[in-house]
Design a protein around this nucleic acid. Structure first.
Lengths: 175, 175
DNA sequence: GTTGCATATGCAATCAAGTCGCAAATCGTA
DNA sequence: TACGATTTGCGACTTGATTGCATATGCAAC
């Protein structure tokens, strides 16, 4: 199915980004991050495992842990799917980097800083789109929607997740 | 903990609503729906099971199935939690009925009709708020936010889920 | 009121995502 | 090159949810 692993092309980008974190540069981390770099939609730990295992074996627990590490570094973020499976994708949607240059060290560090405990002031906001046909989840953070929303008195919002479902451009074109 | 099962007070309301579906009126269905009617936030199947089991034993599988049935009838809807646990609450938030009158048969029938396969035109929209402190999830459908959002070309939205996290009124007051 | 049958329930077994503990391997440094 | 801290891999385990099937139940026809 996956004849030539697409993630191989992103390995050096992945290495750069991982080195920028200051943590250890390991094969599994490189492979997982390269996989994320090579995709434009959110993928599950299983997707990651499959994509990599094709090329060289990797333990699923390791994938879980690397993914979690990437999230804690602010490099990736997780999305709760409707099938109660976590999906992951880069914090900066790869659309902006996939055909350009990899993330810079500064970018990573900034992400990292703002991550640790982001409970405070910032309204963290994400928007995702899941296609009912192909099941893929895309990140819409490029176009943050304006929300006009008033909460009941006393409610304080810290974090906003907008999840859209429908038909993606690709599936629309096919019908 | 739950000294007097609150759901008992809602049993006749539940019976009315279930009869309105045309399907069988069974003890488990009544008990589960009455439990949902008696709460103002989204609860898990386990919450439902516990609440009922206190009064008379019920199998957890039955709870799953009844909950699923309620969703298919359009009476309840499910919310994917951050802990990969489904939570359920009435489609019409019970705040509007809890201290007033139970849902009418007409209301139920209407729900049911619009549910079956709602893929078509309607933008189904839900807004939920989960408290980071107490963990409770509330339905904010009373105050639909206005969304100003443009999707990439070709994307068609059918369904919108807005999930907010923060601190609920109760927990805010306590701090 | 009784009977028959479709439908729901209860139980046990099973599935799958995700986590934990620990020994062995690996990375970066002294 | 060797050492020590960090990661990885493996197996066992947890837990929410699902499936199959025999039994029980609701409802309608008689």
């Amino acid at each position: 199915m996956k004849s030539k692993p697409a993630y191989l092309a992103r390995i050096s980008d992945a290495e750069t980004a991982i080195r920028a974190t200051g943590d250890r540069l390991t094969q599994p981390r490189v492979a997982v991050l390269a996989t994320l770099l090579a995709t434009d939609h959110a993928i599950s730990h299983l997707d990651v495992t499959d994509a990599i295992a094709h090329h060289h074996p990797i333990d699923r627990v390791t994938v879980y842990r690397v993914l979690e590490w990437l999230v804690s570094m602010g490099i990736a973020h997780r999305i709760a799917g409707d099938d109660r499976v976590w999906r992951f994708m880069l914090s900066q949607p790869p659309m902006t980097t996939a055909h350009g240059e990899a993330k810079t060290e500064e970018g990573q560090k900034e992400n990292r800083k703002s991550n640790g405990n982001y409970a405070a002031k910032t309204h963290h906001q994400h928007a995702h789109f899941t296609c009912n046909d192909c099941g893929q989840t895309f990140c819409l953070d490029d176009m943050p929607p304006k929300l006009d929303l008033k909460l009941p008195a006393g409610f304080k919002t810290v974090d906003i997740d907008l999840k859209l479902r429908g038909q993606c451009a690709h599936c629309t074109a096919r019908t």
